[in-house]
Design a protein around this nucleic acid. Sequence first.
DNA 1: GTGAACCGGGG
DNA 2: GTGTACGGTTCAC
Length: 599
Amino acid sequence: MEKIKSTILDIDYITHKNKPVIRLFAKEINNDKQREIIALDESFEPYIYILPSNDSKDIEKDLEEDFDIINLEWVIKKDFQIEKKILKAIFKHPQDVAKHRDSIRKLDSVKDIKEADIPFYRRYLIDNDIIPMDEVEFSGEFINSYETIKSKDKSLKILKLNKAPQKLQNKYQKFKILSFDLEVRNPNGMPNSSKDPIIMIGLASNFGFEKVISTKNKINSSNNSFIETVEDEKTMIERFVYYLKKHNVDIIVGYNSDNFDFPYIKERAKINNVELDLGVDGSGIKFIRRGYANAAAIKGLIHVDLYLVMRRYMALDRYTLERVYLELFGEEKIDVPGDRIWEFWDSDSDELDKLFDYSLDDVVSTIKIAEQILPLNLELTRIVGQPLFDLSRMATGQQAEWYLVKEAYKDNEVVPNKPAGIDLSNRDDNEGGYVKEPEVGLHENLVQFDFRSLYPSIIISKNISPDVLVLDDVENLSNYYVSPEHSYKFMKKPKGFIPSVIGNVLNERSKIKKQMRETDDETQKKSLDVQQQALKRLANTMYGIYGFSRFRWYSFECAQAITAWGREYIKDSMKKAEEYGFKTIYADTDGFYVKFDSN
DNA sequence: GTGAACCGGGG
DNA sequence: GTGTACGGTTCAC
């Protein structure tokens, strides 16, 4: 039996002999061998939870019929803190869940079904407490081949697991990141991948490698050492594939690469008859439907589209690469207008030379942005426990939700379903924080007050959580926190699910801040700082999950209660300050400015 | 005034 | 893939 320490980059499942097989794409990041590993787990089975109705005496008999359920088991799970006897139904294949869940839900003996919409690979990570981008220990046997893996790469190891991977101590890991960018010759409007050829492929990395592959070279041969001139577009694409494999890249980043670069190069590769077998298993680029947009996915090579990521981290009017770069680094990029690139290319003059510099500048800027933002995303990946590929495409609310799904599993709580068919049209938007418009003028001697993490603190101190919210009349009000304005009642005991999760997040953050103060190692300090930021973000997002109607823990009452208490706190504090002779100049949500009024 | 349609990023 | 974005603005009537 082999025992191998390795880092899980990605996960999916395949079907083998009609059964699902989990595939973990891993690499020996902290080991000189740097081998790529596909670990296979054939033992994991899809399941859902079934809540029996009041008339449930025939439930087991009902479920025996035609639902491809291979096993039924009574388990005890908490549903909003209340322990219940629930049926766990195990299926042969994840697709059987999709096929039968609606008919099962409609049975008279069934009240509701739960956790029937959690993707199989996410279920695997949650149930086995496996953290992507962290090191694990695999135990299993190497096998020579596996039907569905067609890689020609001899160094690839395929490992058949005989138990789930074991978590190891979290270690700092340096990933190899490469950015890429295409320039194309498009004289007629926007690029058309069936007609307009790729003229340059730019590559830059966090390990010293920089290159522009092109069919031309600079006219002036100075400063052109980064250029590799090849004979045709076909060779250009082949070299792109070659460098990605040669450098054993872990993460590939682009800017709008889900929508432009990857679809474009895939089409050009097809036209030029080049095999784009970038996947560890020998597969190509797949486009995964995410709503109306596609995400470009490569097996075992994590693709992060920074455009999507940056849109979430900055509030800008536009999110062009130029704009984002300027905002982050205060420097202008080399600019060539998109509609003139073909003219620069055709000019065979100084303008062509400028186009080469522009191409390099694009990928260098992209890698700089990646180095700035990926550490935070790697930390969030570890906290949330879902793959970086997925996490980088999630809204912050979704990140918080998957974190809660993971925590619910640990607490033996059943995960609430996504709200269905809530009519929001006759419901007012929740009133936000208190804002006092600033008094016009130049003010001196201002004093600033602000509440530290106002909303997370309120959630914890008032135990605001849907599982302890009571809407019926109660006998003894002193057992409840009662919200201002709407008088919602939250039980003082037990602690609500979400307040306890936020409490854990904030405690973890305090621990990390303490470690930060105690260490003199600058690299470690930086890494800890990123971790505490990630935890702060997560805590602050928990308020949002109450307010958006498509989230599992949606609760309009909780959202209202939080902001109502927030307004009360800030107004009370302003009033106190005014009693001491201060005058409020400006206030917004969690803080205000006052000045001493000498009159 | 209202709901449908479009747009972002990329060249 | 145990799935189907999103929020803001402009257009069309």
